[in-house]
Design a protein around this nucleic acid. Sequence first.
DNA 1: CAGTGGTCTAGACCACTGA
DNA 2: CAGTGGTCTAGACCACTGA
Lengths: 240, 240
Amino acid sequence: MKKTLHETIRTDMEAAILSGALAAGERLPTEADLMEQYGCSRMTVNKAISALVAASLVERRKKAGSFVARPKMHSMVLDIPDLEAEVLQRRQRYAFHLLSREIRLADPQKEYEQQLSGGEALLVLTGLHLADGQPLAFEERSVSLAAVPDMAQQGFELISPGAWLLKHVPWTEAETRIAAVNAAPEVARHLDQDVGTACLYIERRTWRGEAGVTWVRQHFIGKDYDLIAHFGPARSGGAI
Amino acid sequence: MKKTLHETIRTDMEAAILSGALAAGERLPTEADLMEQYGCSRMTVNKAISALVAASLVERRKKAGSFVARPKMHSMVLDIPDLEAEVLQRRQRYAFHLLSREIRLADPQKEYEQQLSGGEALLVLTGLHLADGQPLAFEERSVSLAAVPDMAQQGFELISPGAWLLKHVPWTEAETRIAAVNAAPEVARHLDQDVGTACLYIERRTWRGEAGVTWVRQHFIGKDYDLIAHFGPARSGGAI
DNA sequence: CAGTGGTCTAGACCACTGA
DNA sequence: CAGTGGTCTAGACCACTGA
């Protein structure tokens, strides 16, 4: 793998920072210094340092110079694994089992349904994600038919609603809430667990521009499922 | 707020993509087109489009051109709130209560302790995070004294171990596992909850370069705490 | 007020790859 | 094989801000 010049400069500086040779708060060489050191133009140096700024490893101050940033763990990158892929990776069979399906207007009592529907009908589904026939997660989902009219025709025998949406709808924004709850009787029954079993509860809303697309609640059996988040320079691609 | 030229081009393209005027898979104007359209040099266009590539909104293919990327929800940005700040925001008093403190060698039976210690002693702590005097989370932490020798002198009456580490140690990498568990008897007792109460379980390992810094397990009372993750163009700064 | 980074130009040569 | 993006140069003017 041949490295470009700005990558070389970038990784050299990165290595110096991660090894501690350049400690947090210390000043990097100026762009002029690096131009001379690498025998290149200023644009090339600038590109290298800009990448480090984008990665929050460096902060720049005019007149003063560029400095090693102190890492701030304000956020981490949360992997959102594809459920089917993850089950297959465990060498188990994956299946989605549709439990109920309904097309109806938004409940005026429920604020989130009003927001999602945009005045049109909702497709309301419940179902189970199965691994080797055993329940892994119970899912309750509402889909805006205003945003996704095609979804009314789907059967979801071969593909889960989530996977279908992923494939067919270009969303732009999503928000996920993660919590731990004791399984309520209905949830416990669907998951074939005792009432009160700890479940990882994931609630996600998805938008396309201003319009809501879908709103989903999932209960995962706590002992069978967890989430992983990372922080660090070994990040896996543009996490937006 | 005056926009620079490359920011103008970037936001123009971004708006076209998010509004749907440029749908997923469609081709953007070539760099030559944009040079003419904005009357600028190619470097400026390139910088604008490169930013969109970094944000995963655009993919480039040589000879073919630049295309609107289909969003892939492989990862989201998980907010890691500062516990003390969050408690204060609820208008409650925050406190950390140290339950135990021990300096000892790594247990040869426990792989993670071996990895963390680097052969040196560990500082092993347990404690409670309190909101208005009520337990919010039970924490078990091991700290590598090889990486953080100063920590042995701390009392943690005024500041929690996590906050102290955040302030004094420049780590570079972290990994967090998030799960739901039923409270074991010891955890339930510390949290003043019934045995079996659903807890959000967070386990985090932190490194500085190759050396482990700390390893922490936290049990949060499920009904009192949750986590939020985001995906979308309205991202909050360089999430690495 | 001088040194720093921020931005931009008008070129250049190149590698890749789809038509 | 021609059009695309990838990279780089050698300059330029500017805004900001710490000494």
